[in-house]
């Protein structure tokens, strides 16, 4: 297992390089020069040139990339053009908020989604199944920002249970977590249900019945274990989606975080910050797939055998 893990980690290196090239180059196609925003109207060309040298924008692109990558690998993400602060500071401020939000949303969607999926599968084609799957369909078709605003309308404005916005105290996390989590929950519930129904039809389940085990025990101890393998795999692949949900939801709830930082920096054409945000999100996606592979190996001895 260990040699596989090392190999798997090494495989991340070319992926990381490819992603970094894409992130770096894409941003240089964005029209609008950040320098223009910094200079006072009527500044001299000399002042402009001096500014470009300061931010390293006078060199050819490949050289800029090399310098940038070198700095990134040393933990130096550059200086924010607009905020005039080290980008690493901005990220360090924003990241914990996003991680807390994303982590809780992931937890919520997994736990609630699995429970709903199991209940639906156990009651296949009866009313609990129909009710859950109907609710799940509706839940997954609402735009997350709209859902967030409606939750604010109901729980903050009408009932006054939770704050409308901000990031103070656990109360401020409830609605954002719900908003992101409901979409993920729908996905998890659907996959859990389908894989449980699929796993119930396998041969070994018949033999479990023939051994005299109770149906509930068979479903929860054996069938569910099998159903969770695809759930974990797909969840890990979709960690990026949860973060994507976090981007919009952070804006809606006016919470600090990577999403708010990204949207703000995009509109200000603040390259270094946007690059850093995207890099963080990309790394989260890569680590997510890695985590998925590891969890799959832990849950399935056949996968472990294939790996070693």
């Amino acid at each position: 297992m260990l040699p596989w893990l090392v190999k798997r980690l090494l495989m991340l290196v070319p992926v990381f390089l490819a992603v970094s090239v894409v992130i770096f180059s894409i941003l240089h196609f964005i029209p609008g020069d950040p320098i223009d925003n910094l200079l006072k109207i009527g500044s001299s060309p000399e002042a402009r040139a001096e500014m470009e040298v300061r931010y390293g924008l006078d060199k050819p692109l490949p050289v800029q990339y090399g310098i940038w990558l070198g700095n990134v690998l040393q933990g130096d993400l550059g200086t924010a053009i607009v905020a005039r602060r080290p980008v690493a500071d901005l990220i360090a401020q924003a990241l914990p908020h996003s991680l807390r939000l994303g982590g809780l949303a992931l937890l919520f969607s997994t736990v609630v989604g699995v429970v709903l999926g199991v209940v639906a599968a156990l009651n296949r084609d009866r009313w609990p199944d129909r009710a859950i799957m109907g609710g799940v369909l509706v839940g997954s078709t609402m735009p997350s920002f709209w859902l967030g605003l409606i939750l604010i309308l109901i729980f903050s404005v009408s009932l006054g249970w939770f704050p409308v916005s901000g990031a103070r105290g656990w109360q401020s996390l409830v609605l954002p977590v719900l908003t992101i989590g409901l979409g993920g929950m729908a996905l998890v519930a659907r996959i859990t249900r389908v894989s449980m129904i699929e796993a119930s039809g396998r041969d070994f389940v018949t033999l479990l019945h023939a051994k005299g085990l109770s149906p509930l025990r068979i479903q929860l101890r054996h069938v569910l274990r099998h159903a969770l393998i695809p759930v974990v795999t797909i969840l890990a692949l979709r960690i990026g989606w949860i973060l994507g949900g976090a981007v919009t939801v952070e804006v809606v709830f006016a919470r600090p975080g990577l999403g708010t930082l990204l949207i703000k920096s995009l509109s200000q054409h603040d390259y270094p910050v946007v690059q850093a945000c995207l890099l963080m999100l990309a790394m989260a996606v890569m680590l997510g797939t890695l985590l998925g592979d590891i969890l799959q190996a832990l849950m399935d001895p056949r996968v472990r055998a294939a790996l070693s």
């Binding site: 041969d203 033999l207 051994k211 849950m299 001895p301």
Partner: peptide, 14 residues
């Protein structure tokens, strides 16, 4: 009970 196909009769993750 002894099943038809031993290859698929056992729970693969137990």
């Amino acid at each position: 009970f002894v099943t038809q196909n031993p290859m698929t009769a056992l729970d693969p993750v137990q």
